[in-house]
Design a protein around this nucleic acid. Structure first.
Length: 516
RNA sequence: GUCCCCUUCGUCUAGAGGCCUAGGACACAUCCCUUUCACGGAUGCGACACGGGUUCGACUCCCGUAGGGGACGCCA
């Protein structure tokens, strides 16, 4: 199969070649003009792609977890595959239903779904133990009777001598003379390779090499018979048929250990892609002190899920110069090749910009509902009339705001009743000069044929001409203060139209009375 | 202490040895629009961490240095 295309700078000849060694696998080759080099740009497999989303039940969904989830989801969906959902609750004490629910809620909010049931790692511990014992039987793993104190001592000594801080393998090939001490339940350790270069092939980081001397015989089964994380992930990923492991950079080192288990069991190693971490605005690891770290906090700050997805996607992944990438586009474009290798800082300015963009595109009814939800948190109840006003001005409102919270602030005067508060700058507008103008407006309001924005504007302009040298602002500012209680607002004449003559008059009377 | 990874405008990034006088976006500044605040439009400011190689030619490849991040648990 061959296709040909022109890009800005080159002629592409694409050959899809079957790999005879793996009949279900195809390579996509790209030839650059002139035909000097060929480069494998993509690896397509006809096997179903299976990714996984394996959060720890921490009680909330970290923004980094969300991004990893998004990447896994996009990759699976892009390739017509599946994303599995597994709770990493090997440490059962951490497990709680609420914690799982929090993650599910986060995923739902982001609009990501998964295939099959949520798998609890804890529920599979028998299987994990079975694998551990099988490895002992085949001589790939062994029992170790060291106490935590002894291990601590080893680490200290190693550090002092400048060696890796590892277990010294004293039970690895224990001679028969070394009888197990009484009363100690052994752990199971795996036999890691002693020498040679170990390579992890990573889709993001490339080939990562480390000497076997840096790997120790890590524990796969604890003294109480429960599996460690290292064993559990490998067994579960294998049993669940995971083909692509897309996860945070912090697991890159673990990968060498996990591969030891894969090899000992003779299992296929999945394709790895390790994503760089998200840093806070100051370059340090994103943490609580940077403000929001969980997706629900971003929701509460007024960000739209589609904006969040777009922003998170662009944080570390790119498609040329494209910035606004909606879900549909992302599904067509997403790949592992264009993930950046360096960690990225979280930038609220950019998020705001992206959010403002999606706000403009969002459906008005949906936005009204979201804003009304926000008002509930402020103990403001919105009547049907209030909702209708919101809707009537939504096109303008959504074009101005960066977040739903801003939109809600902007629109609050449309839904609140009398009495209402005046902010300081608004109060200042209602001085003698201001009240003078407001009274003139009030007196001439009833003469309007239609209480419409156009006529209101004509009226205000004529008042400005008569009393303020044609300076419209001198009329609008005090009027705005009287009607909204604020010094800035969306288009006042349009807002007045929506509020209606009766409500406008009431508010003017209320303001004049208050600042009498 | 040991090992691993990373490094292009303030930030996110484009860049696949000559297309680079390094492109885009956010932020910032100025101007325009304007009843306010925003939105929008235009223009501007602004970077290849440093030092060595390789090459006719390096942002791009290699090696060092510096800086940043990560991992070294009977946590996940």
């Amino acid at each position: 199969m061959c296709s040909c295309s022109f890009s800005r700078k080159r002629l592409n000849l694409v050959f899809i070649i079957e790999n005879p060694a793996k009949p279900t696998t195809f390579y996509l080759l790209l030839y650059k003009y002139p035909l000097e080099v060929s480069r494998e740009i993509e690896y397509h497999s006809l096997m179903t792609v299976i990714t996984r989303f394996p959060p720890s039940p921490t009680g909330f969904m970290h923004i980094g977890t969300a991004r990893t989830g998004l990447f896994n989801w996009l990759y699976a969906r892009r390739h017509g595959g599946k994303m599995l959902f597994r709770i990493e609750d090997t440490d059962r004490s951490r497990h709680s239903e609420e914690a799982v629910q929090a993650i599910v809620n986060g995923l739902n909010w982001l609009g990501l779904d998964w295939d099959g049931d949520i798998v609890s790692q804890f529920s599979r511990s028998d299987r994990h133990a079975e694998v551990a014992h099988e490895l002992v039987k085949t001589g790939k793993a062994y029992y170790c009777y060291c106490t935590p104190e002894e291990l601590e001592q080893m680490r200290e000594n190693a550090k002092k001598e400048g060696r890796p801080t590892f277990y010294d393998r004293r039970w690895r090939d224990a001679p028969p003379s070394m009888t197990p001490p009484e009363g100690i339940n052994p752990v199971v350790r795996i036999k890691a390779p002693l020498t040679g270069e170990r390579i992890v092939q990573d889709k993001v980081q490339g080939d990562v090499k480390v000497n076997a001397e840096q790997l120790d015989d890590f524990i796969i089964l604890r003294a109480d018979g429960t599996p460690t994380y290292m064993l559990a992930v490998v067994v579960d990923d294998h049993d669940m048929g995971v083909t692509h492991v897309i996860r945070g950079d912090d697991h890159l080192n673990n990968t060498f250990r996990q591969n030891v288990i894969y090899e000992a069991m003779g299992w296929d190693i999945p394709t790895y892609a390790h994503l760089p971490l998200i840093l806070g605005p100051d370059g340090a690891k994103l943490s609580k002190r940077h403000g929001a770290t969980s997706v629900e906090e971003y929701r509460d700050m007024g960000y739209l899920p589609e904006a969040m997805r777009n922003y998170l996607l662009r944080l570390g992944w790119s498609h040329g110069d494209d910035e606004i990438i909606d879900q549909e586009q992302a599904l067509q474009w997403f790949d592992l090749e264009n993930i950046n290798q360096g960690a990225a800082r979280f930038d609220f300015d950019k998020l705001n910009y992206v959010n403002a963009h999606y706000l403009k595109l969002a459906d008005n009814d949906r936005l009204a509902d979201l804003v009304i939800d926000l008002y509930k948190l402020r103990d403001i109840s919105v009547s049907d009339i209030g909702r209708a006003r919101l809707l009537a001005r939504m096109d303008e409102l959504k074009s101005r705001a960066k977040t739903l919270v801003q939109l809600a602030d902007d629109a609050e005067f449309l839904v609140h009743g009398i009495p209402f508060e005046f902010e300081e700058k608004a109060a200042a507008q209602l001085n003698e000069d201001g009240k003078f103008i407001v009274k003139i407006v009030r007196d001439r309001l009833s003469a309007l044929e239609n209480f419409s924005a156009d006529e209101l504007e004509i009226l205000c302009k004529s008042i400005a001409n008569d009393h303020r040298d044609g300076k419209l602002g001198k009329v609008m500012m005090p009027l705005r203060a009287a009607i909204t209680g604020k010094a800035s607002s969306p288009s006042l004449v349009h807002a007045m139209e929506v509020l209606g003559q009766e409500e406008v008059s009431k508010r003017i009377e209320y303001a004049l009375e208050k600042f009498a």
